[in-house]
Design a protein around this nucleic acid. Structure first.
Length: 299
DNA sequence: GCCGGTCAAGGTCTT
DNA sequence: AAGACCTTGACCGGC
């Protein structure tokens, strides 16, 4: 059953985004402060809209604080954002909201280039710090893909596990890994998670392109990667863009994909819907889910 | 205003 | 070998 449901970063029907940014060349204290302020302002408006519409799962844009983890960042961004983040975190966690961030595909924790690993760790630290400043517990997660295929898959997984175990404890307590569509399948991710103590996010759409055998058995293992402090398991749902490249996210979600998800997953979960039309797609998903009787009240 | 080019970044896939 | 593409689109300069 679906419990919380939500969407990432921006709205589609209103000009609201937590991802406003600027060019690195125009990075300055003033530019940073005004952009962060704008992202936080619009985040509150989005959260208020979600609250009114029964959605309680939100992915904060990685550009909430543009260039926060970039080597060129020389400003005290936590100082600029702390009080407002704390206020937002307090208000919406009281209402049962759950938050996350999802560093982009340039973050490769198992890269063979040490500098890339270093930058990735910096981005993870920043992502965690946002959630820390909001005063949120470790059920509020930072989502990352497995990374690159460096050598064979066994090596890739070993490298990933080694890097995970080197992370600071507070980062490990928030980090979750998600299966992707070409390198780390769901079974790869579950194996890495079992070895490193992280929870695994299941993306059913990626799984179509890089499927794992024995999905029911795998989901049972996946559920067990979520410990008490991690909160409820999280899943991702999206549909193929009609006529688009394999793997491209569609504007909306197909009813059959929602039904398949609900029939496949035997436990309660929070659902992030990754559709281009964001909240518009979710309003329809909720309707489908009510018809299929696979959504419960959110808390 | 709007449109097209561009953007911080790594790796994979296609041509 | 070089370019397109992804992701969370959004900015920015030129018309």
């Amino acid at each position: 059953m679906i419990r919380r449901i939500g969407f990432p970063c921006v709205m589609s029907s209103l000009p609201l985004s937590t991802n406003h940014n600027f060019r690195l060349a125009s990075l300055s204290s003033e530019k940073l402060a005004s952009t962060v302020e704008r992202n936080l302002e619009e985040m509150e408006t989005i959260l208020e809209w979600m609250s009114d519409h029964g959605m309680k799962l939100f992915r904060i844009g990685s550009s909430l604080v543009p260039f926060a983890s970039h080597p060129a960042m020389e400003y005290d961004w936590p100082e600029m954002a702390a009080s407002r983040l704390a206020k937002i975190g307090r208000r919406y966690s009281q209402r049962g909201f759950r938050f996350s961030l999802h560093p982009g595909q340039y973050n490769v924790l198992n890269s063979e280039n040490p500098n890339v690993v270093k930058n990735t760790v910096a981005e993870l630290l920043y992502s965690c710090q946002v959630l820390d400043l909001m005063g949120l517990d470790s059920s509020h997660k930072v989502v990352l893909h497995g990374g690159c295929r460096c050598g064979d898959m066994a090596q890739s997984k070993t490298r990933l596990i080694e890097e995970i175990l080197k992370l600071p404890k507070n980062v490990r307590s928030r980090l979750v890994l998600e299966n992707d569509e070409r390198i780390f399948s769901a079974v790869d991710i579950v194996e890495v998670c079992e070895s490193s103590g992280l929870p695994a996010v299941f993306d059913i759409y990626h799984n179509k392109f890089l499927p794992s055998p024995d999905l029911p058995g795998l989901l049972k293992r996946l559920q067990k990667t979520w410990q008490e402090n991690d909160g409820r398991p999280k899943l991702h749902l999206s549909s193929q863009k009609p006529g688009g490249r394999d793997g491209a996210h569609g504007d909306m979600v197909l009813e059959e994909d929602l039904r398949e998800l609900c029939e496949t997953v035997p436990f309660d979960f929070d659902l992030m819907v990754e559709a281009k039309l964001k909240e518009k797609a979710i309003l329809e998903v909720v309707k489908f889910a009510k018809d299929a009787q696979c959504i419960l009240g959110q808390s």
